[in-house]
Amino acid sequence: MTVLSRLARAYAPHEHRPLDGYLAAIGAFGAMAGALAAAVRLSGRPLPERPSMADVALLSIATHKLSRLVAKDAVTSPLRAPFTRYAEPAGAAELNEEVRDGGSSVRHGIGELITCPFCLAVWVSTGLTGGLVLAPRLTRLAATALTATAVSDFLQMGYSIAKEKAERV
């Protein structure tokens, strides 16, 4: 039994917690952030003194949409399938999935990460922020498309609610 396995048992004796999977995810995130930082340095592009509020708003909404798209959208379920199992529809073209039991702790940790839009948001926002420095025009264009989709989603839901309310009267 490895030190990490013993630590996981001591940490959560009655529940499986894939600490080595989480460590792998932390390492992968650190590698991604480090690669972005190295790419920025090698590019010679200056870091902005402070991001504009327009960019913060654009990336915030784009992060929300891309995180939900990866974690919950029915169309992206093939990307999650190796790590998850379908549970039930979650409404508005979203799914609830369960992390697959068995297999490695790394697989379990990835399953938890890719089914959690809150967890993915850290990764997505880091990538978009790096993109804003390295390829600002392309990143803003992609973020604009994601933001327009997110706004459209809210409008579609508002329309559905208003329609249901009007039909009840």
Rank of each mutant, 00 (worst) to 15 (best):
Glu94Arg: 04
His16Leu: 06
Ser5Glu: 11
Val169Asp: 12
Gly91His: 10
Ser5Val: 08
Gly127Met: 07
Ala8Asn: 05
Val169Ser: 14
Glu112Asp: 07
Ala148Ile: 08
Leu95Phe: 09
Pro117Thr: 07
Ala142Arg: 07
Leu141Trp: 09
Arg107Leu: 00
Ala31Thr: 10
Arg140Met: 01
Glu167Gly: 13
Val99Trp: 11
Gly21Ile: 01
Leu146Asn: 09
Leu79Asn: 12
Ser125Ala: 14
Ala71Lys: 01
Arg68Val: 13
Phe154Thr: 06
Leu23Val: 10
Ala39Ile: 01
Arg140Leu: 01
Ala33Ile: 09
Cys116Met: 00
Ser104Cys: 05
Val75Glu: 09
Met1Thr: 14
Leu113Ser: 04
Thr2Ser: 13
Ser52Gln: 03
Thr147Leu: 01
Thr2Val: 08
His16Gly: 02
Arg45Lys: 13
Glu112Ala: 13
Ala90Thr: 07
Ser105Asp: 15
Lys165Tyr: 15
Val151Leu: 12
Val3Pro: 03
Ala162Val: 03
Phe29Glu: 01
Ala62Val: 03
Ala24Gln: 04
Leu42Phe: 10
Ala162Leu: 07
Arg6Leu: 03
Lys65Met: 10
Asp101Ile: 15
Phe83Gln: 03
Leu95Thr: 13
Gly111Pro: 02
Gly27Trp: 13
Arg100Pro: 02
Arg100Asn: 06
Gly44Cys: 06
Phe83Met: 02
Leu47Val: 02
Ser152Tyr: 04
Tyr11Arg: 00
Ala142His: 06
Leu141Val: 08
Asp20Arg: 10
Val122Thr: 03
Gly103Arg: 10
Lys65Pro: 00
Leu95Pro: 00
Thr115Trp: 03
Leu113Pro: 04
Cys116Pro: 02
Ala54His: 11
Ser77Glu: 14
Asp101Trp: 13
Glu94Pro: 03
Ala92Asp: 15
Arg80Ala: 07
Met1Pro: 01
Leu120Ser: 08
Pro48Cys: 02
Ser52Cys: 02
Arg17Leu: 12
Ser52Trp: 13
Arg41Thr: 06
Ser125Gly: 06
Cys116Asn: 15
Gly130Pro: 07
Ile161Met: 12
His14Ser: 06
Ile161Glu: 05
Val124Met: 00
Arg17Val: 15
Leu47Tyr: 08
Val124Asp: 05
Leu66Ser: 10
Gly158Asn: 13
Ser60Phe: 11
Ala143Tyr: 12
Val169Asn: 14
Arg50Asp: 01
Thr126Asp: 00
Glu49Lys: 09
Gly30Ile: 06
Gly102Asn: 09
Ala162His: 03
Pro117Ala: 01
Val56Lys: 11
Gly44Ser: 05
Asp73Ser: 11
Lys65Thr: 13
Gln156Glu: 08
Ala92Glu: 11
Leu128Glu: 00
Ala121Asn: 03
Arg68Glu: 14
Ala28Pro: 08
Met32Lys: 09
Arg68His: 14
Thr149Asn: 08
Tyr22Ile: 09
Ala93Gly: 09
Ser52Thr: 15
Val151Thr: 12
Gly109Cys: 05
Arg140Ile: 04
Arg50Met: 03
Met53Trp: 15
Val3Asn: 04
